[in-house]
Design a protein around this nucleic acid. Structure first.
Lengths: 109, 109
DNA sequence: TCTTCTTATCGTAATATTGCGATATAAGTT
DNA sequence: AACTTATATCGCAATATTACGATAAGAAGA
């Protein structure tokens, strides 16, 4: 036990959960905010901005890449990280679909 | 090590991450979908609907409650779980704020 | 009261995540 | 080539999450 039973859930549920999970850590929220507002873009800039070590940031960036929200472009010795626009918008749509499916409660609560 | 360094990040980043984390598991997505569409409401209904044990569902419900997205009202021997409308909408707004902060990329990627 | 039904909690095992230092890799510089 | 810079990966330790059975606790019904 201990492993998530992803196979028991639909592709949609898993995909939404994957996006949300990527957003589920303050460091990754901070990274995405930097990338989204384009204040910083290269890995080194992010490392300087956040109170975490280089290896930890690199790991968080990898998770964001795995989730599809971010992509990296090699720029000489550096790597420029950017929002993956297509998936970014898809994630927003999917998440909003869930939020919007709530039409209010009038029975028990 | 191993613990998230939440204290190093802003309240906003932590709050957004908390909401997203709650959505970051397919079972919790499924539960929220049921609650949002009001197909099912009582704990027992959810247990029947999902391929997880009663204790596991109860634990997921607790996490959703801790994140603020859900509230439970005791209804005799049963408990009626509902979306916590106020926090639900707040979560949607906060998450969309992050998504909307992205204005496109035109430099490196 | 005794039993049953419903939900929460405890204990435990398996697995995943977080974080960092050390090291590897790859590109640029002198 | 040797050195520096930038990023990724490895290995490890600490902690968190996921899942379940067993059990507790509360309400309802016989």
């Amino acid at each position: 036990m201990g492993a998530t039973k992803s196979y028991e859930f639909s592709t949609k549920e898993n995909r939404l959960a994957k996006y949300a999970k990527a957003l589920g850590h303050p460091a990754r929220v901070a990274i995405l905010k930097l990338l989204a507002t384009k204040e910083n873009c290269q890995c080194g800039d992010i490392v300087e901005e956040l109170p975490l070590s280089q290896s930890t940031i690199s790991q968080h960036l990898k998770e964001l890449k795995d989730a599809g929200l971010v992509k990296g472009a090699i720029d000489g010795a550096k790597v420029c990280y950017c929002i993956n626009e297509k998936e970014w918008k898809a994630a927003q749509v999917w998440i909003n679909q869930l939020f919007d499916s709530y039409k209010g409660c009038n029975e028990c609560c």
